[in-house]
Simulated assay, not measured.
Amino acid sequence: MQSEDLAVFVDGIANYFNSTTEHEASVGTPFLSKEVNSFISDFTGIIGISGNRKGSIFFSAPKYMLVHVLSGMGLISSKDAKLMDLVGEICNTVSGNARREFGEDFNISVPITIQGKPEEMGVSEVANIYVIPIEWQQQRANLIVNLEES
């Protein structure tokens, strides 16, 4: 993955927070990791990617952060089902925006959502895993991008 490709995801997650809440997110510098498990939080949305690129995209955040994101959107809820919907929506929105940049052959799956931290989260057999740290309202989340060109 090139730095311009990662910038699509950095900009996408920053734009999501900026456009849906009144508080700007601080997006950190992406870094390489050999695994995703230590970056998984309370709720995670996962999108599978196929076509001109293959792999997966994860958005993982703590419950407290997601409750406050919903609140910033004018929705008051701490129900787990709403939080699962939200992580799926965030991951889907960021992936959909990337599709506009990478073209119609950048195919995204329906989001899968999980609650909690599984013992081991698998990723596609892709060379690099990039972690993009996000801080919003003093809470930390991660966007994990695991892609390569097909």
Rank of each mutant, 00 (worst) to 15 (best):
H68E: 02
N37Y: 05
D80V: 09
T20W: 10
H23D: 09
S71Y: 14
Y64N: 09
V10R: 07
G45M: 01
R140W: 03
A81H: 15
M65T: 07
A127V: 10
G28A: 08
F39A: 08
L83D: 05
G88A: 03
P30Y: 02
R99F: 00
H68G: 01
S95Q: 03
S71I: 03
D85F: 02
S50I: 08
G72F: 00
I90C: 00
T44A: 05
I112S: 14
E149F: 04
N37D: 12
S3E: 09
E135S: 04
R140H: 12
G45W: 00
T113K: 13
I108F: 06
M73H: 06
E104H: 07
V145N: 06
M1V: 05
L147V: 07
R53H: 02
Q139G: 00
A25Y: 04
L66N: 11
N142E: 00
S56C: 09
P111L: 04
M121W: 00
V110P: 14
N142K: 15
N15L: 04
F31W: 12
V36H: 08
Q137N: 14
A141G: 08
I46N: 11
V110G: 13
V8C: 04
G103Q: 03
D80P: 15
G45E: 00
D80T: 15
E89K: 11
I57N: 10
L66T: 07
G103R: 02
A81N: 12
N142D: 04
S3H: 07
F59I: 15
I49H: 01
F31V: 12
E120C: 15
D105E: 09
W136C: 06
K82G: 09
S60N: 05
E22I: 13
L75R: 13
I132V: 12
K34Q: 15
F102H: 04
